[in-house]
Design a binder for these strands. Sequence first.
DNA 1: AATATGACTGTCT
DNA 2: AAGACAGCCATAT
Length: 119
Amino acid sequence: MARLDPEEYAELVLVCVEQVPRGRVTTYGAIAEAVGAVLGGGGPRQVGSVMSAYGGPVPWWRVVRADGSPPDCHDGEAHQHHLEEGTPLRPSGKVDLARALWRPTPDVVRGGRGDDRLG
DNA sequence: AATATGACTGTCT
DNA sequence: AAGACAGCCATAT
């Protein structure tokens, strides 16, 4: 069997992004670790790939690079959202990861799917 | 099987 | 701080 199911992987990645609190951000690597802890595989590239394909309906601007820079396909748009949400920004224009970084937990990933099992 | 590509990351210059 | 390079993981051809 395939180690990674694209649907499952995408699902969990999107869940992680949705769990990111307002005014906070997370990184591709952090999501890759949380999802990888559940499905056992994948990396930052896979997270980015999923975001490109299914990241439309989720707050993608809360997902930034390891250095706090916004994704390479957007820029001003992410900045606008950060200003609106009060995300800690550095003078350089990047996100202040020291204050804004939020790490997704595997527990959230495990229980964050569309089907709730015991309420 | 090999090559090319990607919303990445870390290191060196 | 910014650019060049290599490494990594999965998918598409």
